[in-house]
Nucleic acid binder design. Structure first.
Length: 547
RNA sequence: GCUCUCGUAGCUCAAAUGGAUAGAGCAACAGACUUCUAAUCUGUAGGUUAUAGGUUCGAGUCCUAUCGAGAGCGCCA
């Protein structure tokens, strides 16, 4: 925590003097009458020098002007209260205080959508979590690149081409809607029909070998599909720095395989390349006809990034069911001695329907994202028929984002539209509403950011509750960025929105005759707006101006 | 069969990585609207953290076993 960094250092040095090398365990206090707690001394209860350490701690704590009061329990929990005067200054500079000390360069890989298939519910979390991590890191001052990493290669495309050729469909003249219907049929045919399977595999191999005729067909499918994917992503307010795909590394794969074989890292087994690393199961690098797999392109993608991009880390924001794949990928990167970077699978659980079953349409197909968005819009329209088109669209996006980010990403959660569009509770609608009220309040007042200041002597409990909550921003932001977990921020946004609503509701602010109290509450409202906007930005939510 | 997750209030989820009395939201119940947007607010109730052991000053969190649920397992991505 920025404000207490000097104290933190001093206390850590005291610990070091007593040969205890650890970071200061500074947390939000469990004790409601205190702001923060320090837990390091609890485990030193048996230390013979505990009293000596404690008194040195007390000495430093008493010297620190940021601490208004403190207690040390008989178990050696240390509780601290912060001085309000001191930390109002800190609230003012939150954006600069949360900057990281050492800038990192991070690539976010979305394990992107496949061409030929419309965006479906399964893509939602990757998009939301990815965008949130992107924004959070950017706000923290990290350099960050997003790559959608399209699934534009391999068997699915081959199946589509094969299907079109079989049915005499002119690929050049395909319409999006038609294309989206083809893939499910092609995929089920592939599972049933051996001949279809064979020809599809051949087409895949030809694509791998850069056959010009098939590349042309592939490109045409990709263009059609990408147009519709981009449009839908635009509606959902997602953009990417790089729109690369698996196909972009196709040409560097032969050399990669050759080098790996030369270095005795892989060898041929029944025509397929297998990693020489002793693992169970063995890691398959290519198929037995020499064509490429998911792992082949992922390895090549890393090589490509190492050659062309400057980065410290890659975060793969991909479904947790692919854990084994990423274990194999990271293992292999290490074993093949690719340049060492921080590679991480930022995994997440599945979205199920409200009964906990996989999200399907009524007909049993995969539920499309567009359908979900439309349902959400309709629902919001039913609640309030007076909203304009743009507000409904933003609110629907808010619901799809906030409800997705409020749960820990590892948890499989149930998407319950009724619950998520609920007016009260931890919902996107609620946090938007609180912000709208606050903004209206300021615009109806004569509040001026430059002239009006808080008078601490006239704050009531609700005021300080919100101010103290705002102070936690730094801690929760840090927690989110360190663990790649946006849900801390989502939950915290609800917390401050709720505290603001409580102030708003308890008495009329604009009609308050006491000018100091009025100015206090308006200044606090203004802080709330700033923090709410910042948090919404972290989550990838666009604020509405009215609702 | 092997491997990996998970089991917390009626329901949906948290729990700062081993810290104090396990927290929120929904639903339920009791209150507050001639309103700065009540799409709100205040309060009450709700728990042997699946079960049984263990590790230690301290366990929802770590270890072992059992029960239950889910996921993955070389030529799909």
């Amino acid at each position: 925590m920025y404000l207490l960094n000097p104290l933190k250092k001093k206390l850590e040095n005291i610990l070091k003097d007593f040969k205890i090398v650890e970071n200061l365990d500074l947390k939000i206090s469990n004790n409601l009458s205190y702001d923060l707690q320090i837990n390091n001394l609890v485990k030193q209860q048996k230390n013979k020098k505990i009293e000596e350490i404690t008194s040195k701690f007390i000495e430093e704590i008493e010297k620190d002007l940021n601490i208004s009061d403190y207690e040390i329990t008989k178990d050696y929990f240390i509780n601290l209260n912060l001085d309000l005067n001191r930390y109002l200054d800190i609230l003012e500079n939150v954006e600069t205080n949360i900057k990281v000390k050492k800038q990192k360069k991070i690539i976010i890989d979305y394990g992107g959508p496949n061409i030929g298939k419309p965006l479906h519910v399964g893509h939602l979390r990757s998009l939301n979590i990815g965008r949130s991590l992107y924004n959070i890191n950017k706000i923290a001052g990290n350099k960050i690149i997003s790559d959608i990493h399209l699934g534009d290669w391999g068997m699915p495309v081959a199946q589509i081409i094969n299907f079109c050729e079989n049915k005499g469909i002119d690929i050049e003249k395909l319409e999006t809607a038609q294309l989206e219907e083809i893939y499910p049929s092609a995929s089920s045919l592939y599972k049933q029909d051996i001949n279809f399977q064979e020809t599809a595999k051949n087409i895949n191999k030809k694509l791998n070998d850069s056959d010009p005729e098939y590349l042309k067909k592939w490109m045409s499918i990709k263009n059609i599909s990408l147009d519709s994917i981009k449009k839908m992503l635009g509606t959902l307010n997602h953009t990417f720095d790089l729109w690369l795909g698996e196909s972009d590394v196709n040409k560097i794969i032969p050399k990669m395989l050759k080098d790996l074989e030369k270095n005795k890292k892989i060898s041929l087994e029944n025509g397929a390349y297998v990693s020489n690393e002793k693992t169970d199961p063995k890691i398959l690098i290519t198929k037995s006809d020499g064509s490429y797999l998911y792992l082949t392109t992922d390895l090549a993608t890393v090589l490509n990034r190492l050659d062309n991009l400057d980065f410290d880390a890659i975060f793969y924001v991909v479904d947790k069911r692919q854990k084994l794949h990423f274990e194999q990928l990271f293992n292999s990167l290490d074993y093949f001695q690719f340049e060492h970077k921080h590679y991480e699978h930022v995994s997440f659980g599945t979205i199920n329907d409200r009964d906990g079953n996989p999200f399907k349409t009524r007909e049993g197909g995969t539920k499309q994202l567009k359908e979900l968005l439309d349902e959400t819009k309709n629902y919001i329209n039913e609640i309030n028929i007076n909203l304009d088109f743009e507000t409904v669209e933003i609110l629907a996006n808010t619901v799809l984002t906030y409800s997705d980010l409020i749960t820990n990403r590892q948890t499989d959660y149930k998407f319950d539209l009724k619950r998520f569009t609920n007016i009260s509770g931890k919902t996107g609608i609620y946090v938007q509403y609180a912000l709208v009220r606050a903004k209206k309040l300021i615009s109806d007042s004569d509040f001026s950011e430059d002239n009006d200041k808080i008078d601490i002597s006239k704050l009531d409990k609700q005021d300080t509750d919100l101010l103290k909550a705002l102070f936690k921003f730094e801690i929760l932001f840090k927690k989110s960025i360190e663990n790649n977990e946006p849900h801390h921020i989502a939950d915290y946004l609800y917390e401050i929105s709720n505290l603001f609503n409580a102030i708003y509701q308890s008495e009329n602010i604009l009609n308050n005759n006491n000018k100091i109290v009025r100015t206090n509450k308006l200044t606090i409202t203004n802080y709330f707006i700033r923090y709410s906007l910042l948090l919404q930005k972290c989550l990838g939510i666009k604020p509405v101006s009215k609702m």
